[in-house]
Structure formats: C-alpha cells, structure tokens
C-alpha cells in the first residue's frame, strides 16, 4: 500500500475510531497569493482540518459558483498554474503540514501539462487524492490507470441525479466518495436537495469507502447535520469567502496575523 493513499485511509480510520467526522476544507491556491496560501494551510491544520482540498484556478470553472469563480480569477492574476499548486503542496509538507492533500482541478490544465508529468509531479508533491469535476466516470479510464500507478486516489463523485450510475461509479472508486449534496454549482446554500439524506445513505450502503458530502455546506449547524451520517464534510465557498473578505487585512503587514487567526477561528468552529 502506497503511503499517500494510505494516509487518506488512515485519516478516516482514525476519525472513525474517535467517533468523529473528517473536516475537509477547500481553498483556491494562490488566492490572494502563494505565500498567503502557504500560511493559511498551516492555520487550517491547526484549526483541526483533517484533509485539505487544494483548488487549482481555472479560466472556465463551470462547476463553481461565483465565490470560487472570483477566487480563481484572483489566483490567475497571480499566474498560478498546476505546478504552482503542486509546489504549494510540497512546501507545505516541508512546513510540517501532515494532513492528506486532495487536488481539485478541471481537466484541461492537467491535460496541457501532460499526464505523465502531472502524475509524476503530483506524486512527488505528496498529493493523496484527485478530483476532476469535468471528467465523469465514462471518460476516466486512462486517468484512473495513471492515478493508480502513481498511488493517487482518483476520487469518485456522485450526484443526486446519478441514480443507476452510482453502482458503476462506486465500483471504480478510490480513496473516499464525494457526494454532491444538491443540484447546482459550488456555493453556500440554505437548503439542500430534497432527499439528500436518503441519497447519501444509499451511497453509504453500497460502498465500503468513506463517504464525504460537499457543495453548499457553510455553517457549523450544517456540518453537524451531515456529521450524523457522513464520514466527512467538505466546506469550500464559505472558507473562500472568508478569505476574500480578509484580503485587505492579509495584504497589510500589521493586520496579517490577525486575519490569519480569523480564518483559523472560522474553520475551528466548523470542527465537530
């Protein structure tokens, strides 16, 4: 068993023994800049994050709502590339960050880097899992083969509309299952897809992999709600929006420390 893949598994095993739920924050790498991202990552681990999703900025993020679209645009102004993101993962390890990293990227940036180079460098940078939201199961066979060879888990995504596709998707599942909570793009929301609980329970009953839920979860109350039956909860836009609101402070030497602490506090409060 490869060490990086093992560590996603180990993380879920440890949390399950403790009777908890994995908190999986998301951030867009390079928003507002690479140095700040590196510092935020350290704060997130200290806040109790169990696994981190590193978002690669993309010009046309069609699975994302306005908050992550804006973060992507800011990161692209900083000329952040897939390599930058892998570099951030590597440097974070050197900074002593231990939680598993999942890279969230659209397909085209990976394709243009070249699959050989991408997987080689992702492995070297200690990436444990990979989410590519615009590559559905039917288009994923080559990626899955290469990800397996690199010891990186290509995480399966299932949506409330997946219905009879769920079985096939789960059969090829690695790492943990990412359940999309509701129809729509990423972003905070007050309510979830009708029948979301039954949908997640159904997924859980069909797989031995841990099951995490994401898309739209933004408050402690919502984290608690899903913790009752999920192994992990992903919080994205709410964190990205918190970072966005603190950019003027993060860019000010006198207020930077305080802003980083506010981000840490926001995430710590989500941990159940």
């Amino acid at each position: 068993m490869n060490t990086t893949l093992h560590s996603i598994e180990e993380t879920f095993n440890r949390i399950s023994q403790e009777g908890g739920t994995a908190l999986i924050p998301f951030l867009t790498v390079g928003d507002p800049d690479k140095e700040t991202t590196l510092e935020i990552i350290q704060q997130l681990e200290q806040a109790g994050a169990d696994i981190l999703e590193l978002g690669v900025p993309y010009s046309d993020p069609l699975a994302d709502g306005p908050v992550i679209q804006r973060a992507s645009a800011r990161a692209l102004e900083q000329l952040v590339t897939v390599r930058t993101c892998l570099d951030v993962a590597k440097q974070s390890r050197e900074n002593g960050v231990q939680m598993p990293f999942v890279l969230f990227t659209y397909y085209n940036p990976v394709l243009q880097m070249g699959l050989d180079q991408f997987f080689e460098q992702a492995k070297e940078s200690g990436i444990g899992g990979l989410i590519i939201p615009d590559v559905p199961h039917e288009e994923s066979s080559e990626l899955l083969e290469r990800a397996d060879a690199a010891g990186i888990a290509l995480l399966p995504l299932v949506a409330p509309t997946s219905s009879e596709r769920i079985e096939r998707i789960l059969n090829n599942g690695r790492g943990f299952v990412y359940c999309v909570s509701s129809l729509g793009v990423t972003g905070e929301r007050a309510s979830f897809h009708e029948g979301v609980d039954a949908f997640i329970q159904d997924v859980k009953s069909r797989t031995s992999l841990p099951v995490a839920v994401g898309f739209g979860i933004s408050s402690r109350e919502q984290v608690e709600r899903f913790s009752e039956f999920c192994d992990g909860v992903v919080v994205g836009s709410a964190i990205v929006r918190t970072i966005e609101s603190l950019i003027p402070d993060l860019m000010n030497a006198n207020r930077r420390e305080d802003a980083l602490l506010q981000i840490r506090k926001f995430v710590a409060e989500l941990k159940v």
Partner: peptide, 19 residues
C-alpha cells in the same frame, strides 16, 4: 461515446450526466 476520432466526448460534471 460521442467521439469524432480524438475529439468530442462528454466532459461535464456528474450532475449533468444522466440528463
């Protein structure tokens, strides 16, 4: 699979696949 040689296919979020 909707392929024209190397081109085409279906690269969309899972939510749209059944549609």
């Amino acid at each position: 699979k909707g392929r024209y040689g190397d081109f085409g296919g279906r690269f969309v979020p899972e939510t749209l696949m059944n549609a």
